[in-house]
Simulated assay, not measured.
Amino acid sequence: MRKVVVFDVDGTICFDGRTIGPDIVEALRSLRERCNLVFASARPIRDLLPVLPDDLHDATLIGGNGAFSRTGGELTVLGIDHADRVLIDRLIDEYELTVLIDGEWDYSFTGDQAHRIFRQLDAGQLASNIPREQIERYSKVVLFASDSRIEDELRRSPLSINVHPDEGIIDIAPSGITKRHALGRLGIADGAYVAFGNDANDELMLRHARTSYCVGVHPVLSFADHHLSRDDVAYAIATIEIG
């Protein structure tokens, strides 16, 4: 059985929100000859595809921190339960929040166009920005908010929550959904893969990897087996020991 290497994208192999450097792309292409690649991102699949070179589009993809997955060209989307959607909608209305809400493919964005997230949003013009009421089922939600009251309410729910205070966002996925959970759904067991990541939403994926690489410095990922600077990433991929 071919070995598996899993890569987070933004901040791990992509540093400008739009492209992957040519040295890293070359290393990924070489690595693909020896093992299966998985790209696991907070982005939905729609926004992940424009970042990857065309010849890597058929790799296994995980998006929305685990809410989306695509393998063999087949897209699977998990949604937020109705009761949790009611909670999210109430918080949006009560606190007059701006949002990015992803459905199965289309999305609803009401945030600041100067925010980093907007620059990454539907770069391939593959979907439509629609009112949130028209989204049949929420799959992933970003609240543009930095308010402990909102965080507290969300943490009392079953939802999966990642807070990014440096960006002023709260990232919400369906109950129990993480990148590690998505790997399990795809038949990739704990300890059966190598993983690269850089942020808190990569914690469980890295913690249960056979070998883990943290790009940059993050206190939640201090346990990682290897710590890399951006400049080290291409070399680390090129020289990785698959076992």
Rank of each mutant, 00 (worst) to 15 (best):
R85W: 02
R85A: 04
V86W: 06
V86D: 08
V86A: 11
V86T: 13
V86P: 07
L87W: 02
L87Q: 04
L87F: 01
I88Y: 00
I88D: 00
I88L: 04
D89M: 06
D89I: 01
D89A: 08
R90M: 10
R90H: 14
L91D: 06
L91G: 00
L91Q: 02
D93W: 02
D93G: 10
E94W: 10
Y95K: 15
Y95L: 09
Y95R: 13
E96I: 06
L97R: 03
T98L: 02
T98V: 09
T98Y: 11
V99T: 11
V99W: 05
L100P: 08
L100K: 08
L100F: 10
I101A: 00
I101V: 12
D102V: 04
D102R: 00
G103S: 10
G103P: 05
D106I: 07
D106K: 03
D106M: 06
Y107W: 09
S108K: 11
S108F: 12
F109Q: 02
F109M: 00
T110E: 08
T110W: 02
T110H: 10
G111C: 03
G111K: 00
D112L: 11
Q113V: 14
A114V: 13
A114S: 15
H115D: 01
I117K: 08
I117S: 05
F118A: 11
F118W: 14
Q120P: 10
Q120L: 09
D122C: 01
D122T: 03
A123K: 13
G124C: 12
G124K: 10
Q125E: 15
Q125W: 13
L126F: 15
L126K: 15
L126V: 14
A127K: 00
A127Y: 00
S128V: 12
S128N: 14
N129C: 08
N129E: 02
N129S: 08
I130Y: 03
P131H: 04
E133S: 13
Q134A: 14
I135K: 03
I135F: 05
I135C: 05
E136K: 11
R137K: 14
R137A: 07
R137D: 07
S139L: 04
S139V: 03
S139A: 13
S139H: 05
K140L: 01
V141Q: 03
V142E: 01
V142A: 03
L143R: 02
L143E: 01
L143C: 01
F144V: 02
F144S: 09
F144I: 05
A145D: 03
A145H: 02
D147T: 07
S148P: 12
R149T: 08
R149L: 09
I150T: 06
I150K: 08
E151L: 10
E151F: 09
D152Y: 10
E153L: 12
L154Y: 03
L154R: 04
R155E: 15
P158F: 10
P158H: 11
L159H: 01
L159M: 11
L159E: 05
S160R: 07
S160Y: 10
S160A: 14
S160G: 11
I161M: 01
I161T: 08
N162P: 12
N162S: 14
N162D: 15
H164V: 15
H164Q: 15
H164L: 14
